[in-house]
Amino acid sequence: MLVGGDGPTVFDRVLAYGDGWMPGHHEDQGFFRERVAELRERAAAAGRGHMEITIFLARLDSLDDYAAAGVDRVVVMLPTGEERKFLKGVAKAKDSR
Score class of each variant (00 low, 15 high):
86 F>Q: 00
45 A>W: 07
5 G>S: 11
70 G>Q: 11
61 D>Q: 12
96 S>H: 15
3 V>G: 02
30 G>C: 01
71 V>D: 06
27 E>I: 08
26 H>R: 11
33 R>L: 01
62 S>W: 05
17 Y>K: 13
67 A>V: 14
88 K>C: 09
15 L>R: 00
68 A>Q: 15
66 Y>L: 07
91 A>G: 02
6 D>E: 10
79 P>H: 09
52 E>Q: 14
70 G>V: 10
60 L>D: 07
64 D>P: 06
49 G>L: 03
91 A>H: 13
12 D>C: 00
46 A>Q: 05
36 V>W: 04
62 S>G: 07
57 L>S: 12
6 D>F: 07
71 V>Q: 02
12 D>F: 08
2 L>V: 03
64 D>E: 15
53 I>G: 07
93 A>I: 03
24 G>D: 09
44 A>S: 08
86 F>L: 09
25 H>S: 08
59 R>Y: 15
77 M>V: 02
16 A>Y: 04
35 R>P: 00
36 V>E: 05
63 L>E: 05
94 K>V: 14
44 A>T: 04
87 L>E: 08
12 D>Y: 10
67 A>E: 14
13 R>V: 07
41 E>K: 09
54 T>W: 11
13 R>W: 13
24 G>V: 01
74 V>S: 14
21 W>P: 05
36 V>I: 14
87 L>N: 04
33 R>D: 03
68 A>H: 04
83 E>R: 15
62 S>T: 08
77 M>R: 15
55 I>M: 14
91 A>Q: 12
8 P>I: 00
96 S>L: 10
45 A>M: 08
48 R>M: 06
49 G>E: 02
66 Y>F: 12
29 Q>L: 10
39 L>G: 01
22 M>L: 11
22 M>E: 13
78 L>C: 12
78 L>A: 12
80 T>D: 14
37 A>F: 04
9 T>H: 04
52 E>P: 00
71 V>K: 00
25 H>T: 02
56 F>T: 08
32 F>D: 03
83 E>C: 01
84 R>M: 04
7 G>Y: 02
12 D>T: 07
63 L>F: 15
35 R>I: 04
90 V>M: 15
6 D>K: 09
62 S>A: 10
75 V>P: 00
30 G>N: 12
77 M>N: 08
16 A>K: 14
62 S>Y: 11
76 V>G: 08
14 V>L: 07
95 D>Y: 14
